[in-house]
């Protein structure tokens, strides 16, 4: 066992884990943050996407021990039931989900792509969103509304950024 310390959703956490514990297992089983889903466990579905030091990664394909000292955000950390993140609000408005299993990964990938395109000064078109969703699979095939939701959230998030500046 090895001690792993991270900041998860703004809180410092520290746990003893096996050296081959996956980040997804660490989040779900040690921290009981079960919003991060494991769909395929073969690195293909993207339901387990979280943000590590500002980058969206698949938590089922990273060892917790290798991310010691990192700053993590999971879907639990982006908003709350009474104060949804604009991405969550847009998914709700456009019904960007059917069964909802892939939604945590879609939300985290969606926020990441909006932030990356914004930082690069590129326009996040519907076509670009579909391309960016390459690694997030919805088995209910609900992509149409997911794309609409991310498109709207991109606008809301850009507006909020401008207002903040």
């Amino acid at each position: 066992m090895t001690n792993v310390s991270m900041t998860v959703n703004g809180k410092s956490v520290s746990c003893d884990v096996s050296e081959t514990t996956l980040l997804s297992e660490f989040l779900r089983e040690d921290l009981r943050l079960t919003g991060t889903h494991v769909g395929c466990d073969t690195s293909q579905c993207g339901a387990c996407v979280v943000h590590v030091d500002g980058k969206a990664i698949k938590s089922c394909t990273a060892l917790a021990v290798s991310l010691n000292g990192s700053d993590l955000t999971t879907v639990e950390g982006v908003g709350s039931a009474s104060n949804l993140h604009p991405m969550q609000a847009a998914f709700k408005k456009h019904h960007g989900l059917q069964c909802g299993f892939c939604t945590p990964g879609m939300i985290m990938a969606g926020i990441d792509m909006v932030e990356r395109y914004h930082a690069a000064g590129q326009e996040l078109t519907a076509e670009a969103i579909r391309h960016e969703l390459e690694g997030n699979i919805c088995r209910c095939t609900g992509y149409h509304n997911i794309v609409k939701a991310i498109e709207e959230a991109a606008g809301t998030m850009a507006g909020q950024k401008q207002a903040a500046e």
Binding site: S43, A56, K58, A109, D112, E132, G135
Partner: peptide, 9 residues
Amino acid sequence: IGDPAVRAM
């Protein structure tokens, strides 16, 4: 290569 999350790692 792969997808955005794979490219990040």
